[in-house]
Amino acid sequence: MKKQPKPAGPSQRMLRVGELIRHALAALFARGDIEDEALRGMVLTVPEVRMTPDLKIANAYVMPLGGEHAEAAVAALNRHRKYIRGRIAPQVELKFAPEIRFLVDETFGEAGRIDALLRSERVRRDLDTDPDDSDEG
């Protein structure tokens, strides 16, 4: 019987290319090269870029500083993605520049949700119980 391959995480090449694209996007956003009313005065962060295994698609997760108008920012970036691809292609030095898809980064919201759960009364009550008071023994 053949062994099924384990689902592996991203390869070193995927991680390296994703990081190159992330830096190129951050530099492009810092220069303010994209002319769009929805992005005017907005500071964008790019916490992560995930590449597909064939390196043809880059999923760029972005979030405006402060988290406001994230959907509008992502929509504006996706409208300009061909322009953005052309601007970062020379910087990443790949045979083919990947298609870039912009998505809202949900990790900040998820971290806030976990923090709120950890601060909840229910969790605090569980943490405050004395382990010596347990019925086990």
Rank of each mutant, 00 (worst) to 15 (best):
M1S: 15
K3M: 10
P5I: 02
K6R: 14
K6G: 06
G9V: 06
G9I: 07
G9Q: 07
S11Q: 14
Q12F: 15
M14I: 08
R16W: 07
E19V: 09
E19H: 10
L20K: 14
L20Y: 04
L20V: 00
R22G: 07
L25A: 03
A26C: 04
A27N: 09
A30H: 04
D36Y: 08
L39N: 02
L39W: 01
R40L: 07
G41M: 06
M42P: 00
M42C: 09
V43E: 06
V43K: 11
L44K: 01
L44R: 09
M51D: 02
T52V: 05
P53V: 10
K56M: 13
I57Y: 07
N59L: 12
M63K: 08
L65Y: 11
L65R: 10
L65Q: 13
G67N: 08
H69N: 10
A73Y: 00
A73Q: 01
A73G: 04
A75E: 13
N78V: 04
N78L: 08
R79K: 13
H80I: 03
H80R: 11
H80E: 11
K82P: 00
I84P: 00
G86E: 07
R87W: 01
R87I: 03
Q91W: 08
K95C: 08
E99F: 04
L103W: 15
L103A: 15
D105L: 05
D105R: 00
F108R: 10
E110A: 11
A111I: 02
D115C: 03
A116F: 04
L118D: 05
E121Y: 01
R122N: 13
R124T: 15
T129I: 15
T129K: 15
D130V: 03
D135P: 07
E136I: 12
G137S: 13
G137L: 11
